[in-house]
Simulated assay, not measured.
Amino acid sequence: MTFDAPTLDLLERVRTAGRKPFSACTATEARAFPTLMKSLFGEGLPVARVQDLALPTPQGHPLPARLYVPEACNGDLIVYFHGGGWVLGSVADHDPFTATLAARTHAAVLSVDYRLAPESPHPGPVDDAIAALLQGGQAGAGWLGQPLRRLIAMGDSAGATLATVRTRRLRELPGARPVDLQVLVYPVTDAGFDTASYRDFAQGHLLSADDMRWFWDHYCPDTAARRHPDASPLQASDLAGLPPARIFTAECDPLRDEGEAYGERLAAAGVDCETVRCPGLLHAFLSMIHYSPNAARAFERIVQSLAAPDDEHRP
């Protein structure tokens, strides 16, 4: 592995900061720390319109979301689920990134403030994710003021898990507009903790194995329920018929191998799936695209993956 200088500096700063690990915190204590996205990303790019929405849900609670519509919107809607182990993070923390994503891709982005654990454990965040995708398919054209060209499910880390789980479940709902593309950035796909990347990067690479156990204990304390494909999508028995997938893993991330294994499962089921291992990168590298040259290059690959075949002909 070859880390760029800013990443090496970040690892050294984290090592010497002496901050209490998540595994020694309550959820409230952990939320008091600034997220990497809030600490590192910086300013977002401007977009034509930002609108806060309250989406209806079958459970009766309003689901907060924020819509970003760029100049010259191409008609795509990315429904985005932020990372944070189902416990941390928010639309507000990800605001600069999601605005930048909209501006760079010319797609509208709907960033979803799904409920967090432990206050709302599994399947609460999953239920919110399906409600957001359903609303995106039904109301997207009205939000954009033009026909909805593509519905895209996207997320990072635990948010990527929600994106792919609800993409799979959406195909089972009669009359629902299907997802056209899923983009999963360093996804959580299993609760096994037993891969080579878990062993190789258990400590000292931002996200630790103990952190992930802590996240799972808050999100899905029933260890038997973690085997359900709505929690661990790698455990799904049938992945055939899913929309194309683009998976991006980080070389030095405990979650790397399970993300890549999920890509292999999708491809074996006949899904158009491309899995890209991003070299010299850590978990949460989307927060580092203005900080690390390696992360900036990975983001360029992600932006390219979101382009439709006819985008090259757009003015």
Rank of each mutant, 00 (worst) to 15 (best):
D4C: 04
D4W: 10
L11D: 06
E12T: 14
T16G: 10
T26A: 09
E29S: 13
A32D: 13
P34F: 02
G44F: 07
L45A: 15
P46H: 09
A48Q: 15
R49T: 14
P56H: 11
P62R: 05
P70V: 10
Y80V: 00
F81I: 02
H82R: 09
G89E: 00
S90K: 12
F97P: 04
T98L: 07
T98Y: 03
A103F: 07
A108G: 15
D113M: 11
R115A: 04
L116K: 14
H122D: 06
G136M: 06
G137I: 02
A139M: 10
G142M: 00
W143G: 06
L148W: 09
A153F: 01
M154I: 01
M154H: 09
D156E: 15
T164L: 08
R169N: 04
Q182R: 01
V183E: 07
V188R: 13
F193H: 15
R199C: 01
D200G: 04
S208R: 03
A209G: 12
R213W: 12
H218N: 15
P229A: 05
A231W: 01
R246V: 03
D253W: 11
Y262M: 12
G270E: 03
V271G: 05
C278L: 12
L282D: 02
M288S: 07
R297F: 02
F299A: 14
R301P: 00
I302P: 11
